[in-house]
Computed example of a mutant assay.
Amino acid sequence: MSDDSRQTPPEAAGRGLSHWLSHFLDRLGLRGGGTIREDITDALAQGSGQLADLSAQERAMLSNVLSLRERRVGDVMIPRADIIAVPADATLDEVLARFRTAGHSRLPVFDDSLDDPRGMVHIRDFLEFIAGQAKAEPTTGLSEPALHDLAAVDLTRTLADTKIMRPVLYVPPSMPAVDLLVRMQATRTHIALVIDEYGGTDGLVTIEDLIEIVVGDIEDEHDLEEAPTIAPEGEGRFTADARATLDELKQATGIDLSDDPVAEDVDTLGGLIVTLAGHVPAKGEIVAGPGGLSFEILEADQRRVKRLSIVQRSSADEDGDRPAETG
């Protein structure tokens, strides 16, 4: 028996994909002396005329696929502060209300806190349980079953009692995003909790988050159009979500903080402000920033800044604040 016959399905699939990509490069005349990844990356970077048949969107997606293995779970996860979850002792009525406001089909379930996860509840399992409790029975002589008796559903029953929770995956933030995508496909589990080195919950990743790395944002009929994370409010003034990135700050104000030491280990405005202040500032507090920026906290709690106002001083204002030189 040949070695090929002993290949596992993933190995065979990988070899088939490699052969297809090699053939693809040969047809385009892009086959060089490097690896397939290097050849495609170089062709995309050089804007090769051989790729003219590919649209801008196709080239972007191909580039995103190649960069997928460089992305870590920690780069794409929903931070802990933004996780919408339910406690295991929540009543069915409370779970129903949370599903209505969350806009998600899956919710993590925890005991005492997010650091003690129990699994997740899927809205389909939840509705199936409710329908089962409503006990719709066919009526003799009628072709259609009787209407569900929702009054028979005990909405004070706890989620833990229903036994409808499903397991979730637990992964470290350093795990490559592509490895998590493969694992989700293999286990048919579309939600993972990101666990830090101490066993605490650091964030959450869904399969949709991973697919969006390649294809961009996916919105369905229930997604609301989001307001800009940084919105102008007049000359030199902006309101912003604290989750806005420093790249978005640069686009809005033209101020690039990427080389500023204070922004070396932060990605968001909230992180920048906490770093500058040395604590989580309270509502109404003003924090001076680099580049002639100042930040006024509009909304915050004990754990994080939520919304803020940005004031960008002009060069003339900055010069006026400096003491005059004496001759």
Rank of each mutant, 00 (worst) to 15 (best):
S2I: 09
S2F: 12
Q7K: 15
R15Y: 08
H23Y: 10
F24H: 06
R27E: 15
R31Y: 04
R37M: 04
D39T: 04
A43D: 07
G47T: 11
G47N: 10
G47H: 09
A56R: 15
G74T: 09
D75R: 13
M77A: 13
M77Q: 10
E94M: 09
L96A: 14
T101V: 15
T101L: 12
G103F: 09
G103R: 07
P108E: 03
F110A: 01
D112I: 03
D116H: 14
D125F: 07
F126W: 06
E128G: 14
F129C: 05
K135N: 15
S143W: 06
L147R: 09
H148C: 09
D149P: 04
I164R: 00
L169Y: 01
V171W: 00
P172I: 03
P173Q: 03
P176I: 02
M184Y: 10
Q185E: 11
T189Q: 08
H190Q: 10
G199E: 02
I207T: 11
I211P: 02
V214S: 05
V214T: 08
V215G: 07
D217E: 15
E221N: 08
E226G: 06
A227F: 07
P228Y: 03
I230T: 05
A231H: 07
R237T: 13
F238P: 00
A242K: 02
Q251K: 12
I255W: 02
S258Q: 12
D260M: 02
P261H: 07
D265E: 15
G278D: 04
H279P: 05
P281M: 04
A282P: 08
A282D: 15
E285P: 07
G289A: 12
E296C: 09
E299R: 14
R303Q: 15
L308I: 14
S314Q: 14
D317C: 11
E318Y: 07
D319Q: 15
E325W: 12
